[in-house]
């Protein structure tokens, strides 16, 4: 009973906090949160809520190919958003595709964050040559568009892998490629914050106690540099999903047997001029709305965590 009351009190306190307040102030943010929740929820729950499994050949019937959406004259009640040329239900394909897009995006951001935060901490705390080396690499990489870096890394990694395991590992290759293309802004932000924290007296106190650089970076500085990292992670998620879609659209992403949103757009694009517009428009709208909503959430988080802007 008291435990329940304690939980209730914590929820009430969280709801009354500044961040929750700024959330409630903005209808756009609440709408974006709702849309994100719906899309991510749909993607996560795809195996349970999708009408069919588009990856299961047994459930796909070529006879159902190229059916337009429900509301047009030849629509079919079984396929709300129509079907593609192989007879796959577009709604199911989008739910499953979003699942892959979001998973790859989130994993890539996590990888970029791990790499960027570590290098940024090391660079800012140790300074000197280590700092110069890491930051010059970052500068050089930043002078290329990240999609080019991702393409390059993707090409190299695929070239290194044996042909037999290329398909199976393609998702992981994609995650590493996008992550390597995206670590720079994490590293830069963390480095600049670390430079400030490094000279503060609590860090000096830890040094006098005798703690080593690794322990000071992890236990003392890291918790104090994390809040901008969360904002960047949120905004990067949108970028990473887009990068994945771009790579898949260019045909170097996930295989067509497991289409992500980008793959769906690419495949559908071939049929756009022959009138089957729904095959590419619906995945495109889903992607655009998802990226927009995540971006709005990221912007809100940035403003909410920055007391100077409030």
């Amino acid at each position: 009973m008291s435990a329940l009351a304690a939980v209730r009190a914590r929820v009430a306190a969280a709801w009354a906090s500044d961040i929750a307040w700024s959330f409630r102030q903005s209808r756009v943010t609440m709408a974006a949160a709702l849309v994100t929740l719906l899309l991510v929820g749909g993607a996560v729950l795809a195996p349970w809520i999708a009408p069919t499994d588009p990856f299961d050949p047994a459930q796909v019937d070529l006879m159902n190919a190229e059916i337009p959406p429900l509301w047009s004259a030849e629509g079919d009640a079984r396929f709300v958003l129509g079907t593609d040329v192989q007879g796959r239900d577009m709604l199911s394909a989008i739910l499953y595709g979003g699942r892959i897009s979001i998973a790859v995006g989130a994993a890539a951001v996590a990888f970029a964050m791990l790499l960027g935060v570590t290098l940024g901490l090391v660079s800012g705390y140790l300074g000197g040559r280590v700092d110069a080396a890491i930051m010059r690499i970052a500068d050089v990489q930043l002078s290329f568009p990240s999609i080019l870096v991702a393409l390059l890394v993707h090409g190299i990694l695929r070239g290194l892998l044996p042909a037999s395991s290329r398909e199976a590992l393609s998702v992981y290759v994609l995650i590493i490629a996008i992550g390597l293309a995206d670590w720079v802004q994490f590293a830069r932000t963390v480095r600049s914050r670390t430079l400030v924290e490094r000279d503060r007296e609590y860090v000096q106190a830890a040094r006098i106690i005798g703690r080593g650089p690794a322990a000071i970076m992890r236990a003392h500085i890291l918790p104090n540099v994390m809040s901008p990292v969360l904002v960047i992670a949120c905004i990067s998620l949108a970028t990473a999903i887009l990068t994945e879609a771009s790579l898949s659209f260019l045909g170097v992403g996930v295989p067509a047997t497991q289409p992500s949103l980008g793959t769906l757009i690419r495949i559908g694009n071939n049929y756009l001029f022959s009138g089957q517009w729904w095959m590419t428009v619906f995945p495109s709208i889903t992607l655009a709305v998802l990226v927009l909503a995540v971006n709005i959430l990221g912007d809100w988080l940035r403003d909410a965590l920055n007391p100077l802007l409030r």
Binding site: Q204, A205, I208, P223, N224
Partner: peptide, 23 residues
């Protein structure tokens, strides 16, 4: 000589910067 270092400690000027705010 960590045993020597262990015998000295420091108290800082700025009480707002000398304690880790997240601990």
């Amino acid at each position: 000589n960590p045993q020597m270092q262990a015998r000295m400690q420091m108290i800082f000027q700025d009480p707002y910067a000398s304690l880790n705010p997240r601990w």
